[in-house]
Design a protein around this nucleic acid. Sequence first.
DNA 1: TTGCAGATCAGCAGAGGTTGCAGATACGGT
DNA 2: ACCGTATCTGCAACCTCTGCTGATCTGCAA
Lengths: 140, 140
Amino acid sequence: MGVRTPTELTTEFRTRGLKVTPQRQLLFRLLHGNMTHPTAERLFAEASAQMPGISLRTVYQTLNDLTAMGELQILQSAAGSARFDPNIDDHHHALCDRCGELHDVYVDHFDSLMVSGFDGFRPDRASIVFGGVCAACAAA
Amino acid sequence: MGVRTPTELTTEFRTRGLKVTPQRQLLFRLLHGNMTHPTAERLFAEASAQMPGISLRTVYQTLNDLTAMGELQILQSAAGSARFDPNIDDHHHALCDRCGELHDVYVDHFDSLMVSGFDGFRPDRASIVFGGVCAACAAA
DNA sequence: TTGCAGATCAGCAGAGGTTGCAGATACGGT
DNA sequence: ACCGTATCTGCAACCTCTGCTGATCTGCAA
Ligand SMILES: [Mn+2]
Ligand SMILES: [Mn+2]
Ligand SMILES: [Zn+2]
Ligand SMILES: [Zn+2]
């Protein structure tokens, strides 16, 4: 779970009555196993290298469709553009202050956390972002 | 700690060689004890009511100055504009899916959380956003 | 295989939020 | 009160993302 292959996404699009165009297939491939939490611009650049002429609009459209299907998570970056995450497993993130890299971390026993102040609020999910310095930047 | 009065902010600005203008003082007052996590536009509207002619640019400038001094936290809202938080105590947030209200929650024993995947990453802070429905919206 | 209705595409214009810039203004040390 | 310089205002530009439109392409039925 949590990793959809291009073939699975193709099937899912067809099942929902959405057409599977070459542009969409390219994006399925670019996203598959992508751990970089890329922005739309970044995916557009990578897509353009393989398919000159593809439009940024189409990239956004496909990312939005995938998000609506629950196949992508959107992560709001502090500065600038949204980042897209094809990892739909329950996980959290570590953001490097120096290079901006975002990588996945997994948290156990999150439910045992003691939280005060909910005051009637009913949480149904939580997202943690750790800030700090990544291994590569610490070495440099 | 965690709550700076307008007087304290005035002193801090002077200490740093920054001037204390009526515009800045008004914003100090509007932020003091403000638990609403307002946007810049919202603060601009409130400020304009008391000081017609103040510019949105000045509001942003002062909020940025305060943030650079560590007297404000910026919270990147998923959709739209940033929200500013004068509460600089270590705390986290609950975001209502219905009305967008953001309120403070406090977490104990955060350090006891089991996190895997840091892989050399050195975290120095963390921010949790709980998603769900607030008490007021659940009642309606 | 062919043809059609409707989905999708590229390209561009525009919205929303934030920042850069330049000339006018005013804080605050003297 | 004066002056030097930080700040203010107003506007234009910027960045990211979405709306719109005519042309093109896809999936499906025949
Ligand atoms: Mn992730
Ligand atoms: Mn807060
Ligand atoms: Zn790094
Ligand atoms: Zn609510």
